[in-house]
């Protein structure tokens, strides 16, 4: 004898109760009686377009991508094979691509958030002359396609780049020796250029909620500006910093346009493109896309679970 809930009858009655409750909720949405019912109907109406979009443009394509990744044949989703996943885990080339993605996204995330904190601090704490222009300059790269950002890096740090030539003139060295655009450092700068505005955007929201009176209290109690930042401001902006780290890391992993121009480091997104465009290995491309999705989702979910970050999935 099992427990009532463990008994088949108990299980069925539990399922029946849940179905009944579900039906009641649907009925209350269709024909609302109480204010709670009407509220529920409004929520459903507001979210229905996105739910439809999520199903059509999100869940279904993801499922199809997964099916492709485990397909036993190249151009048809038939059978079941884990060969693509075996390739990803055993082939040193793909492990290196994964490692490249992680260090590039991780490094540029730390650099971007590290630079975004002082920028945001300056913007939010002080009355700066020409602040609007500065804000526009800082946030501008968000609206730039990665490919344009990469082009700008070429214009600045390429063989004939403005800064390259300036340094060449100042140091007397050949500009070709100094050009960094098409190199890992160039790619690093291009990534940061795209990621700093995103980090700044999140941090500005966090700074807007800071208790300025607490900062003034700390100063009046003898704390220097640095001590005030460390003991009072930083604990208040920590959720924003963690949120910025999560968001910019995800951005770093997702960047693709920049890599079309500066292909010096092969990362996950670039490799997916290569699998599709040149290798025609659609199963591996599907497996890479599936791994990418689950990694990003799990990373964000864990980040939110174990921190007080201010960013959504």
């Amino acid at each position: 004898m099992g427990t009532p809930s463990g008994h088949p009858d108990g299980t069925f009655s539990g399922v029946r109760a849940r179905i009944k409750a579900g039906v009641t909720i649907v009925e209350s949405i269709v024909d609302p009686l109480t204010e709670r019912d009407r509220e529920r109907r409004r929520v459903v109406a507001l979210c229905a377009p996105f739910a439809a979009l999520l199903a059509i443009a999100g869940a279904y394509p993801l499922w199809e991508v997964f099916r492709i990744s485990v397909s036993a044949e190249q151009y048809r989703s038939v059978g079941f094979s884990l060969q693509a996943y075996r390739t990803l885990t055993t082939d040193p080339y793909y492990r290196r691509v994964a490692f490249n993605s992680l260090w590039l996204a991780g490094g540029t995330t730390l650099a971007s958030v590290g630079l975004a904190v002082p920028i945001t601090h300056a913007l939010e704490k002080y009355d700066l002359p020409g602040e609007d222009v500065f804000v526009t300059l800082v946030s501008f790269p968000i609206s730039l396609p990665g490919i344009v950002a990469a082009f700008m890096i070429l214009v600045l740090f390429g063989n004939n780049g403005v800064l390259t030539n300036l340094v060449a003139v100042l140091t007397g060295r050949e500009s070709i020796e100094l050009a960094i655009a098409v190199s890992a450092p160039g790619l690093f700068v291009a990534f940061c250029y795209s990621m700093i505005p995103r980090a700044t955007l999140i941090l500005r929201g966090t700074y807007a909620e800071i208790d300025h009176a607490a900062e003034e209290a700390a100063q009046s109690l003898g704390a220097t500006p640095w001590q005030t930042f460390r003991h009072v401001t930083l604990p208040q902006i920590r959720p924003g910093i963690i949120g910025a780290l999560i968001l910019t890391f995800r951005t770093g992993l997702a960047i693709f346009g920049t890599l079309i121009v500066i292909q010096t480091v092969v990362v996950w997104t670039l490799q997916i493109s290569r699998e599709l465009a040149t290798g025609y290995d659609i199963q591996v491309a599907g497996a890479m896309a599936t791994v990418y999705f689950f990694f990003t989702f799990a990373f964000t979910a864990l980040g939110l679970r174990y921190t007080s970050a201010e960013v959504g999935l």
Binding site: D211, A214, A217, L221, P235
Partner: peptide
């Protein structure tokens, strides 16, 4: 200078 604020301004961390 000791400062006492209307909104308390305590350090909640």
């Amino acid at each position: 200078v000791g400062l006492v604020f209307q909104e308390y301004a305590l350090f909640d961390n």
